[in-house]
Nucleic acid binder design. Structure first.
Lengths: 333, 333
DNA sequence: TTGTAAGCGTTATCAC
DNA sequence: GTGATAACGCTTACAA
């Protein structure tokens, strides 16, 4: 058998002249141990460089103090900000996060959940509402407390986010209010959230009697500025009468904006352009980009807080939070 | 004692009519178990929904199959690409990565190492070469195999990266070759890598007899486009004779570029601007940005491969790799 | 190829 | 407030 890290709780106990369980208590529930022993133990810990083993602790207590976070991408700032918010809440609480990036592939998401279950996470933070049936089955089979991020559901699941559909509709209404009549939609990736923004856009245009399915350009490939530029070309080639473009995210919109400048297309005079997410660069483009600011960091924080609540207290309500969104109206529209 | 996840290896063993150890072998070293039992066991695993426990496995085998990755920031694309490369190598090998983000704070880096040692990672991937003395002490005390990313050292540590100093010097020489004579430097964050790029810049300018300490503007705050714009203002206000600016990263450079356009400063005619990292947006700015492309994804992949090698084979050489860099000469210079 | 026994480092339980 | 003992779920060492 290979050597472990070396120093164990028993070593500390021996050095401090107490029993192992007292060391355990001194570290986890200091209130239950006398001042004198606590100090002796602290000294022994320092002297020996003792580091407790999470494996042993998890095994004995059936709590891993670990939360699984499943996100569709690590290269999208949106999820990074969310992760950052989660981290800010989980770390001080003594929880560690396991990050699973499934590259927008729900099969891989399922595999990741399966793989990470080996760590017996105490809870899961999930992105979006739609998943493989087996994914949901696994969650309930293991009775895993879960919080869903980024969107809202009305089926009792605990959600922290905002209505993607409402946000899409709000932006479409803004463009209508600006007097635009041929409002196109550029979509990439086509994940759940993009499709909901699209649904909101359709709803708003239908209400105004301005919907035209031939003004929608959808591409399942990952979005990028390059793709935004290319889609702009294609859109204007097919429909030169288009007078506004709602892009499903800022990357696409920034690429489209760039191509407009290259081709001498006046924004917003001839064509209005809008994005989604309010990335840093959106305020810095030429012209500055109209977009939707999303409370992604707050979503992470709030979701993590909610999960902690569920872990502390089994009986807690699975309360959802709608954190809203904000239209950022800039010069591109 | 609270219930665990439920199904254990013994349950599987009972259902398959074998002993627990045979189940263990069927899962980890299938070659050592007969076809017949393997199939029986596989069936039992499926039927019961058995998921092995990493805690138990780690405890019994003294190997966690886990690697710690310490990075200074999650909001910098550079490190995300690196993470992504690491993930691509570690995951197929059955290793899970623990991600520690220390926000460019070496004290927090030390704390994170301490905290993550509780998981008994089999190895560590570290960003940069300079760390707290206690950090190095902890590493060697726990005899943790480590690979250092992003830079190169000649002290026997296993490094995967490129020479930050050479890259800084190369860009400065490019600007000199373009006929620039008052070449300034904009630096933010001032982490180890920025300071080495600065050192390279100084070296090159000294060699050319063109170094002028009053052309260096350094700010320890995190970099952003906003800061780049502000620093440009300050620099030109103090030194209107400056004819080139080497920015320590692309964010700064893009902000500077933006402000130049606002103020009507001709780039590159009156002022050349260069960045570092070659982010996506660098090719899309107006004018496109001259910068240094860095092999960050490859650094992650190669570092992870090297670590795996060290974990498989204790006697393996700690071979460093210089993955180089590439000047991307675009219109801004 | 398969099984038995012991132990990994911690915590729950119950006693003092 | 402190301690003895028995798990937790798995793997190593050794035996058959």
């Amino acid at each position: 058998m290979r050597a472990g890290s070396g120093v164990t709780m028993h070593d500390v106990a021996r050095a401090a002249g107490v029993s192992a369980i007292t060391v355990s208590r001194a570290l986890k529930q200091p209130g239950q141990v006398s001042q004198e022993l606590r100090e002796k133990i602290a000294r022994a810990v320092d002297m020996l460089g003792y580091v407790p083993s999470r494996s042993a602790s998890a095994l004995a207590s059936a709590r891993s103090r670990t939360a699984l976070v499943l996100i569709p991408s690590l290269s999208n700032t949106v999820f990074l900000d969310t992760l950052s918010g989660i981290e800010d809440v989980l770390q001080p609480a003594g929880y560690q996060m396991l990050i699973g990036n499934y590259h927008y592939d729900s099969q891989q998401e399922l595999q990741l959940l399966r793989a990470y279950l080996q760590h017996r996470p105490d809870g899961v933070l999930i992105t979006g509402l739609a998943h493989e049936p087996q994914f949901d089955a696994l969650l309930s089979r293991h009775a895993l407390p879960a919080v869903y991020m980024m969107d809202l559901a009305d089926d009792g699941r605990c959600c922290v986010g905002f209505s993607q559909e409402d946000a899409g509709a709000a932006m479409a209404r803004h463009l209508l209010a600006q007097g635009r009549r041929k409002i196109g939609f550029l979509g990439a990736q086509l994940d759940e959230r993009v499709m909901k923004r699209l649904a909101g856009y359709r709803l708003a245009l239908h209400e105004a009697g301005r919907h035209d399915a031939a003004l929608e350009w959808l591409n399942p490939a990952p979005s990028s500025m390059q793709m935004g530029a290319d889609m702009l070309d294609a859109a204007l080639a097919q429909r030169p009468d288009c007078d506004a473009l709602f892009c499903c995210n800022d990357d696409l919109a920034l690429g489209a904006l760039f191509r407009c400048r290259e081709k001498g297309i006046a924004v917003p005079e001839r064509l209005a352009v809008a994005g989604f997410n309010d990335l840093q660069a959106a305020a810095w483009s030429t012209p500055p980009l109209t977009t939707v600011a999303t409370p992604r960091r707050q979503i992470g924080e709030q979701a993590a807080r909610q999960l902690l609540r569920m872990l502390e207290d089994d009986a807690v309500e699975a309360a959802s939070s709608d954190l809203g969104f904000q239209l950022m109206l800039r010069r591109s529209s």
